[in-house]
């Protein structure tokens, strides 16, 4: 469970995040949606303690992210940012192996190797594990990064726009992988999404943000609704019944 209490972050007199008070339940996928500049990524990075907060408290699984030692937190919550450029030349397996660092401090045991193999297999990367990252396509590379945070074996996984730069097929595959990770590996996954229909179909909860504040939080059935979406995205949205559940139409 992730609990945010009166979280506040000030950038300038115009740009502030919060105060945000929110409870994200354990298990399942929670999608953060909202217009550009709503503070979705900022909130995610604050939960993942990559960015400090000005006031309030954030707790992940009962641990305060500002006061808990970073090395302990690394076993509880993992975060993957949007832009990942490494100067280091790594193979897929070497990258995924880094995810075990909080547990093994760089000395991999056979258990670590098993978990690494499992994460790689989980994302269908077994055949690519010896390849270097710069030899992969964007979708494969994104999967390798996700495999790394899964290998970290944390209860909570935060992903900042993992569908960015992925085509239709790879977006769907990625969401299916994440859904499976949430169900089969019992992870709590919080994910920033731009496509409301992906959020509506794959997530268990949707958190809508606007102007640095949480404006709606609930199940997709509740959020996928004309008025709520039109108000959140400040553009007319119509929700229709699609073959696999509600579909937002906005173009």
């Amino acid at each position: 469970m992730i609990t945010l209490t009166e979280v506040h972050k000030k950038y300038s007199s115009e740009v502030t995040i919060g105060p945000v008070t929110l409870e994200i339940p354990t298990g399942g996928i929670t999608a953060l949606v909202g217009p550009n500049g709503a503070g979705k990524s900022t909130m995610l990075t604050m939960v993942g303690r990559l960015l400090g907060i000005d006031s309030g408290t954030i707790e992940v699984a009962g641990y305060d992210v500002t006061s808990t030692a970073s090395k302990d937190l690394a076993k509880i919550v993992s975060i993957l940012r949007q832009e990942n450029h490494f100067v280091t030349r790594l193979t897929v397996r070497q990258l995924v192996a880094f995810g075990r660092f909080p547990h093994s401090k760089g000395r991999l045991t056979t258990t670590d190797e098993e978990i690494i193999s499992r994460s790689i297999d989980f994302l269908d990367l077994a055949e690519l594990e010896g390849r270097y990252l710069d030899q992969l396509s964007g979708g494969q590379r994104q999967r390798a990064y996700v495999a790394m945070v899964l290998a970290q074996d944390t209860e909570t996984v935060l992903l900042d726009e993992p569908l960015n730069n992925l085509d239709m097929k790879h977006s769907v595959l990625m969401m299916q992988h994440l859904k499976r990770a949430a169900q089969e590996l019992n992870r709590t996954i919080v994910i920033v999404l731009h496509d409301i229909n992906f959020a509506g179909h794959y997530s268990d909860y949707i958190c809508a943000m606007k102007h640095g504040k949480v404006v709606q939080f609930g199940t997709p059935e509740r959020i996928m609704n004309d008025e709520i979406l039109s108000e959140v995205f400040e553009t007319p949205v119509q929700v229709i019944d699609g073959p696999n559940g509600p579909l937002a139409v906005y173009y």
């Binding site: 993942g48 990559l50 690394a74 076993k75 993992s78 940012r81 450029h85 490494f86 970290q152």
Partner: peptide, 10 residues
């Protein structure tokens, strides 16, 4: 691997 990944790994 950069600041974000480093901090993520504790």
């Amino acid at each position: 691997l950069g600041r974000d990944t480093t901090m993520n790994l504790g």
